[in-house]
Structure formats: C-alpha cells, structure tokens
Design a protein around this nucleic acid. Sequence first.
DNA 1: CCCTCTGTTGGATT
DNA 2: CAATCCAACAGAGG
Length: 264
Amino acid sequence: MPELPEVEIARRLLARWSHGAEVVALEPLTGGRLEGDPAAALGATLARWDRHGKLLIGHLSGGGALLSHLGMTGKWARGGPHLDPRPHQRVLLTVERGGERAQLTLIDPRRLGWVAVVPDPAPWLARLGPDALDPALDGPTLARRAGGGAAPLKTRLLDQARVAGLGNICVLEACFRAGVHPHTPAGALPPAAWERLLAGARAHIAHTLAAEAGEEITYLSEGGHNPFLVYGKAPAPCPRCGEPIAKAALAGRPSFYCPRCQPL
DNA sequence: CCCTCTGTTGGATT
DNA sequence: CAATCCAACAGAGG
C-alpha cells in the first residue's frame, strides 16, 4: 500500500512523535529487518525527519541517519509489543523527549520493509533520482531523465534512479490524467506529455494526501471501496469517456488504462 | 474446509 | 532492456 503519499504521512507522524527526541533503544522484533549498526543510534537525537521518494530518513545528531523503507505493507505506529501488542510488529524504536518516553513500531505483515542505521545517508540518496515533489523537477527535466529509447514509459517512471517516489498506482493514475498509454515507448512522447505526466502525478499525490492525512495512517485503498480513477477498475467504464478500462501486465505488474483516452 | 490467485515494494537473475 | 523469480503474507475467490 505505501506509495509516496503514505510515506509522506509516515514522515509527518514520525516527526510529530520523535522530532528532537533521543534514541533510547532500537531493536528488532520477530521477523524484523534491522540493518546497519543500530547501536550507533543510541543516545543520538533525531534532528529531522526527511523523505526522498519512498525512503524515510531520520537525521541523527552526529551525522548518521536512521533509514526506513515501508516495503509493500509497512506502517509506523505508536505503541510497542508490551504496551500495545499487535500482530506483525517488526522493529521497536524507543525515544525520550522532555522526560517522556514513547515507543514507535514498524508494523509490516509481509516483512518487505526495513530499518537501518547508517553513518552517512548520502550514498543512499545518491542512488535515487529527484523526488517527484521536488520543485526543481519540471517537465523538461523529467523528459531528459526518463525519456528516450524504446522502453515503456511505465518502466522508466517506476525506476527510482530516474525519478524517486512514483509507484505502480501513481504512474497509472498519472498516465490516465495525462492521456498517455503507460506502455508508450519513452522516446515517442512529446514534451507536452511529460508536463502533463508530472502534473498528473502531483495531482494524484495531492489528492491522496489530502484524503489520507490525519492522526492515524488510513490508506485510501483500505475500506473495500476503490478510490482510484483507473487502477484496479477494469472492466468498469472510464470516468471520462465510458469505454471499459483495460488491464495488461508489464514485468509482472498490472497496468490499467482507458484504450480510448490513452491510445498507443 | 481447502486450494489457487493476486499484489502496493525492490532486488537478483536469466 | 525485459521477463521471471523471489522475499512473506493476507485476503479474495472458487
């Protein structure tokens, strides 16, 4: 479930719960992936919570960082296994601020998420392209980074080294909003299409963020009702023209699109 | 009840 | 490049 909006919400929550707090303990729970040197975080202060694409970065006083990725099913919540036992608690972070302790846990049923403590986050960030919400990222820049060649547009937009933060759902929603088929060869797109794709991705992200923001993480896709324009909609009618939404697979991942609004 | 299928992440392999 | 498998599980459907 986590794509950029959910990671951004996780960032805000982590900042609210632990900004300026000291790391008192950091430990793996059953099945948890805690890598790097967790002991290096002990006693350090969480100076700032940042997000780059789908990577969470907790900057530690002293220069290191606490990194976290949510994988497919991760979320951060307050409460630990002793105070508030819940299934699938994987990593436990205990912080102290103003004399008050708080326990934060990474909850992750499928265990594809992780936490790591690294001495310098720079090499991790260097592997990622500009964040999708970075104001410096514009249409021409996106075209330069993701355009050219015969590879499908969707493959390029999902490549975190080209642009960071776009997931399968976001890419498909952006393609629909831009009127572009997700399997269009990346080199065949005119400049105006890149502008529309970027605007479409940001509109989808803003819409999802607004709908999900709150005290708790509540994923838009949870609750039995599909809130997206095309993702998971086949063969429902296209919201714009009524043509049945189509489904196809690329690299094992599903694509959804309107054959009439998004011709190849 | 038991299969079988699907998948929001990313990485390795062919 | 791109297709495939994998990680480990929940939930849906037959």
